[in-house]
Every structure is written in structure tokens, then in C-alpha cells.
Simulated scan of single mutants.
Amino acid sequence: MSDDDATGDTATKPGDDRGATYASFVAIGDSFTEGLSDLAPDGTFRGWADLVAEHLAALTPGFRYANLAIRGKVLDQVLEEQVPSAVAMGPALISLCAGNNDLLRPNGDPDALAKRLAKGIRELRATGAEVLLFTGVDPRDSPVIRHARGRFATYYLHIRSLADLYGCRLVDLWSMQGLRDWRAWNPDRLHLNETGHRLVAAKVLTALDVPDAGEWHKTWPLPTAPTASRTENARWAREHLLPWLGRRLRGTSSGDGLPPKRPNLTEWP
């Protein structure tokens, strides 16, 4: 993407506060940021963003956190519904991960998505907040989305360019080999499990230069049995793929009507 493709504005330079702590954090996006498939002791979804907030809160008294992400949201919904709320809250740190649900649709255009994403990034950076962007995991091992690998790779290259252009922090999940093992994923093969979210949280804290971030590298032991037998694949298709396809055909989302889990920027308990 050229500068003219992204914006006519002058690029924002990265801040000079590498290693600084953050007094407030707003997370926006879809199921990845909401934290699906990682259950907290009280039965609510936790996920990498909550884990990052917990770590930041331990470093900064009075730390505040909001999580506006809702499963199933496409990019335009995030830009229209969540970005203005994040801007109004004026936090020190904002994470933005969106567009993957768009790319799962046949008409998902990574170039068009990146242009719309750039507008949202400009709005967030204009607040003076540190902005955190994400590439996704390489989908070549996924039976659902590997056919769209080229679209995903193109979109993630745009995100890398936008992070550089606007001085955003970048979390590169594509390079995380530990996330290519299905033991880091929920049985639906679309959402990370507790282990996967913990690995991402460590990578996020490393990207922020936060002390004692933890280890995001993961080398799995060899499996004792095949991880994707024909019987397991058939069960997965029946329990997860067919309901997902049904929602796509009906034009509905698993997040329809759901509120964000932490809609206000409040102090971490």
C-alpha cells in the first residue's frame, strides 16, 4: 500500500516512551479480543486482553480498562460502533483487531478493508493514544479458511504497513509457531483456548515493552495420537462448521444483540 492509498495526512511518529506503563486500556474488535473459549473462574470469557489488563493493573495503581469487542463483528461495525466510543474514552492504549470476519466471506477484499481500517487508525491515533494492531495467524493449517490464505496474507501485509505509517505497535501472530498447533485452539478451530490466549497476551506485552511479559514462544511435545482423524474431522464439521455456515447463509452473527463485556472504562478490580 502506498501512502496515497492509506491517507493524505502526515504519518504520525512513534512515541518515545518505550517500556512505559499505561494508565488505561480500551480493547476493540471481535471474538478474538472478546476472549471466546477462555473461561475465567466465574464462567465469563477472559482472553488475552483481560490478561494484559491484569498485568498492566499490577504495574499501575488506578489502572482502568474497557473491552468493547463483540464476537462476529465485521470491520465496518467495529469502526462505526466501537471506534467512536474508544475515542470518547481517551485511554492511553487502544488495541484494534478487526477484518478477519470480513475475509471469511467470499467478497472479502483485503485492499478495500485496509483502506477503511486506515481511517479508523487515524481517528484513534489523533487522540494521542498508543495504538496496538495485529496480524493474524497463518491459516494454512485451517480446514475452514486455508482456501483464503492469499486474502489474509495480503490484509496482514497492509496492517504491517499501516502500523509503520502511523507509528502503531504491531503484534505479529503470523510468526508465532506455537499457535499453529491445534492444542492452542478451541475444538471449533476458529477461536483460541486458554493456552492460546496466554501466548498472545505474552506477545502483546512484549510488543508494548512491558516488563516481565512472560514467554510467548511455545514448543509443543509430540502428540501421542493423530490430532485430526477422519472421525474427529466429521465431528468437527457436524458440531462447528455446519452451524457456522448456517449463520453465514442467514446473514446472522453469534454476537447479534450482545453487549460488550466491559462497556465502560473503569478501574480494574
Rank of each mutant, 00 (worst) to 15 (best):
S85H: 15
R262C: 07
A11S: 14
I94T: 11
D30K: 04
R151A: 15
K115F: 06
D38R: 05
D212K: 11
A20W: 02
A53V: 03
Y65E: 03
A27L: 07
D17K: 10
G120K: 01
S161N: 05
D50Y: 04
R183G: 04
D109K: 01
W220I: 12
A228P: 02
G150F: 03
R122Q: 11
S95E: 08
T219L: 02
R247I: 00
I70H: 05
G35R: 13
V78I: 04
A129H: 15
T224P: 00
D5G: 09
E130L: 09
L133R: 03
V137G: 02
G136K: 04
W185C: 00
R230S: 09
R262T: 06
Y155F: 15
V137T: 03
K261N: 04
D102C: 02
R105S: 09
A126F: 06
V74A: 00
T219Q: 05
R160G: 09
R151V: 10
D188V: 12
A213K: 13
P226K: 08
D4H: 13
A118L: 12
K119G: 08
G29R: 11
L51W: 01
A202L: 04
L157R: 15
D164K: 15
R149L: 13
Y22V: 02
T10G: 10
A53W: 01
N264L: 06
E34S: 10
T206Y: 12
R146F: 08
R183L: 01
H55Y: 12
G29A: 11
D141C: 14
G136F: 05
G167S: 13
V200Q: 00
D50R: 04
Y22A: 02
M1V: 13
L117R: 13
D3N: 12
F152T: 01
P14W: 10
A112H: 06
P211Y: 11
D138H: 14
L36N: 06
C97P: 00
P61K: 09
P139K: 05
Q82H: 07
D30W: 03
W236M: 01
R250E: 14
E123W: 02
F45D: 09
A148C: 01
S31F: 05
A57Q: 10
A86K: 03
G15A: 15
L93D: 03
D50H: 09
P226F: 08
H217V: 10
E239H: 14
D5R: 08
L222K: 07
V210Y: 09
V78A: 05
A237W: 06
T135K: 04
G150H: 04
L56S: 01
T206W: 15
A201R: 09
G214N: 12
P84W: 12
G43C: 01
R262P: 00
P260Y: 04
C97R: 04
S229G: 12
L56A: 02
D111L: 09
A58W: 12
W216P: 03
G8D: 11
D138F: 13
D209N: 15
G90E: 08
A11V: 08
G47W: 03
G15Q: 13
E80K: 13
Y155T: 07
S2A: 03
A148L: 06
R18H: 08
L199E: 02
M89N: 00
